[in-house]
């Protein structure tokens, strides 16, 4: 994805890999880094989707899925950027800290439609658990998506659609 050229408000239909993780997995990654100096998931070049899937119905690689509130994880955003995460996807307005970090690291934040989980399920073609299966829905998952509708919410210049 041409992250550097995207402007806040621009829509994107994203196809490609995503790394799904949310509050608990990020907290554990940070604790792991503090304890051992390394982490069990390579985050370099990944796009992180803040989400926790429902149980998969028969015939689907993953269950109903959709973005969770991003601002809850703003304090852990720099950790992700420093390990090479390219962008994050979630829902809702973030704190000024997130905007500042997007500018400093030249990274973007996207919003995905929330409360649209049944429709988004069909956009996920492949899924596997990358780490922390004991966290159940909060484990780290690698997924492959096709035509996931997104809106650029914070671009690399720090323009934020929620503050326009």
């Amino acid at each position: 994805m041409r992250i550097e050229t995207l402007k806040a408000g621009e829509t994107v239909l994203y196809s490609g890999p995503l790394c799904i993780m949310r509050d608990a997995a990020q907290k554990r990654l940070i604790q792991e880094m503090e304890r051992t100096g390394k982490i069990s998931v390579d985050l370099e070049g990944r796009i992180v989707f803040y989400a926790g899937p429902a149980k998969a119905p028969p015939g689907y690689p993953i269950g109903a899925i959709g973005p969770t509130t991003s601002s809850r994880m703003d304090k852990m955003l720099e950790f992700l950027y420093r390990r090479g995460v390219l962008a994050t996807i979630g829902k809702g307005k973030r704190t000024p800290l997130a905007t500042e970090l997007c500018v400093r690291y030249r990274r973007a934040y996207f919003v995905a439609p929330s409360g649209a989980a049944a429709a988004l399920t069909s956009k996920i073609v492949k899924a596997s658990c990358l780490a922390y299966p004991d966290l159940a829905t909060e484990a780290v998952y690698a997924v492959e998506v096709t035509n996931l509708p997104l809106i650029t919410a914070i671009d690399v210049t720090g323009t934020d659609i929620f503050s326009l």
Partner: peptide, 25 residues
């Protein structure tokens, strides 16, 4: 407005396939 199509599609798919409207059940 933005995401109107997918929100409407979601309502229909959830009802027809008995999938949750939102993953946060």
């Amino acid at each position: 407005g933005p995401f109107a199509d997918i929100l409407k599609e979601n309502e229909r798919i959830a009802r027809e396939k008995r999938l949750p409207l939102c993953q946060d059940t």
